[in-house]
C-alpha cells in the first residue's frame, strides 16, 4: 500500500462569518504520493488557490486535518509551520518570485540559508539542484539576465534544493511561452519520476494535463477527482 507524503482529510475553508461567510472550499480529501503528478484545475475563484494554500501549510483549514509524512500538522505555532514548509514543501510560483538582487545559485540556496546551512554546503546543494533543471551553466546569472523559462527553472531548483517531498506549483506555465512551458512541464514530470517527489500543479493550462497522473477538478469550492485521460481526450477533441 502506498503511503501519502501529504494527506489532507476533510479540509474546508470558510472566510468570514454569518451571512457574510464565503465557503471557499468544501470538505475535500487529497492525498499526495511520491513519484506522482497531481494536477488541480478549475476556473478562477473556484477554490484552487485555497486548496493549494492549505496543502502548502500557509493557510489553516476551517475544518479537517493535514498530515505531512504521517504527522498531524498543528497550526498554533507560526514558527513550527514555517519550519515544516521549509523542510517538507517546495513552492513554485506563477511569477517565479526570485529575488532580483541575488544570483541564480543564491536564489536557489535561500531555503538552505533559512535552514542555517553553511555557505559551502549551500552552494554545493544549490549547484546540484540547478544541474537537475539543466541550469548549471547559469549559476551566477541574475534573474534579469535569464529568460522567463530559465527563471522558472531556477524557481523549480529552489523548490527542489531542500529535498522536500512535496512540490506545489501555482500556475507554473502561465507566464511562459509554449516552448518554455514544455521544458518546465517536462522538468516537473522528470522530477516526480526520478527524484520521487509528489508534484501538485494548480493551473488553467490544459497543456499540463499531459504530465498529470491524477487530476482534481475544483468548482465552486467543491473538489472532484477526474479521469485525466478522458479529460485530455475531451480537450483534444475541442
Amino acid at each position: 500500500m502506498r503511503t501519502a507524503v501529504l494527506e489532507a482529510q476533510g479540509v474546508s475553508k470558510v472566510f468570514g462569518h454569518g451571512e457574510l461567510a464565503v465557503h471557499a472550499l468544501h470538505p475535500a480529501d487529497v492525498s499526495l504520493y511520491r513519484g506522482e503528478v497531481l494536477v488541480v484545475m478549475g476556473p478562477s475563484g473556484s477554490g484552487k488557490t485555497t486548496l493549494l494554500s492549505i496543502l502548502g501549510l500557509v493557510l489553516a483549514p476551517t475544518q479537517g486535518s493535514v498530515r505531512v509524512e504521517g504527522t498531524l500538522v498543528r497550526y498554533a505555532s507560526s514558527d513550527a509551520l514555517a519550519r515544516l514548509r521549509r523542510d517538507k514543501v517546495g513552492f513554485i510560483f506563477q511569477q517565479f518570485n526570485l529575488l532580483s538582487g541575488l544570483t541564480a545559485i543564491d536564489n536557489v540556496a535561500l531555503p538552505l540559508l533559512l535552514r542555517g546551512l553553511g555557505q559551502k554546503e549551500r552552494r554545493t546543494r544549490a549547484g546540484r539542484a540547478l544541474d537537475l533543471v539543466a541550469m548549471a551553466d547559469k549559476l551566477d546569472a541574475k534573474p534579469r539576465h535569464l529568460s522567463v523559462g530559465q527563471q522558472q527553472r531556477v524557481a523549480i531548483a529552489r523548490a527542489l534544493v531542500a529535498e522536500a517531498g512535496v512540490l506545489l506549483c501555482d500556475e507554473p506555465t502561465a507566464s511562459l511561452d509554449s516552448a518554455s512551458g514544455t521544458v518546465v512541464l517536462d522538468t516537473l514530470k522528470n522530477l516526480a519520476k526520478t527524484e520521487k517527489r509528489a508534484v501538485v500543479v494548480v493551473t488553467h493550462d490544459t497543456r499540463v494535463l499531459k504530465i498529470a497522473d491524477r487530476l482534481v477538478h475544483v468548482e465552486d469550492g467543491r473538489t472532484r477527482e477526474a479521469n485525466r485521460h478522458a479529460e485530455g481526450t475531451t480537450r483534444a477533441a475541442q
Binding site: 500557509v58 507560526s78 514555517a82 519550519r83 514548509r85 521549509r86 511569477q95 518570485n97 531555503p111 533559512l114
Partner: peptide
C-alpha cells in the same frame, strides 16, 4: 512579494 515568498518557503518571523 519577496517577503511573502520568504515566508512561504520557510522564513520564520524571527528570521
Amino acid at each position: 512579494r519577496d517577503y511573502g515568498m520568504l515566508k512561504a518557503v520557510g522564513a520564520r518571523n524571527r528570521d
